[in-house]
């Protein structure tokens, strides 16, 4: 019984230590998505981030047209994440989206992804 308790305490300590370590090594970046049109784009953004190495968590900011990403430093960079988004058709500040991926976005999000403005007002 005692042993179990000790193991439990150790593992909790280890886990929380790990969590601390994680927090220490993480960075937070706000990635601007100028092509953000409506929540139709959320699925593409989330599906990209979910499969990105080093991404810990994220928050979408539809009003600000951006996404706040928490990632592990050393495993990835904000630029890499931006690149991955662009590869899946999402236009970011520094990277042009993959034209084939744009075709797969909802129709209302396509013009904005191509950098054509004036049709997606929110």
């Amino acid at each position: 019984m005692k042993k179990t308790v000790i193991i439990l305490i150790i593992s909790i300590a280890f886990l929380s230590g790990n969590a601390f370590a994680q927090k220490k090594n993480t960075k937070t970046a706000e990635i601007a998505i100028p092509g953000y049109c409506c929540k139709g784009l959320n699925k593409t953004i989330e599906n990209t981030l979910a499969y990105e190495r080093g991404v810990v968590e994220w928050t979408l900011n539809p009003e600000k047209k951006s996404v706040t990403v928490v990632f592990r430093d050393g495993k990835t960079t904000a630029d890499k994440i931006e690149k991955a988004l662009a590869e899946n058709g999402v236009r970011t500040a520094n990277h042009k989206p993959n034209p084939r991926a744009i075709e797969k976005l909802p129709a209302c999000c396509q013009p904005a992804a191509k950098g054509e403005s004036g049709n997606c007002k929110h």
Partner: peptide, 11 residues
Amino acid sequence: MYYSQCIRKLF
């Protein structure tokens, strides 16, 4: 925190 909004069924 994950932020998820249901995508409107556009069909």
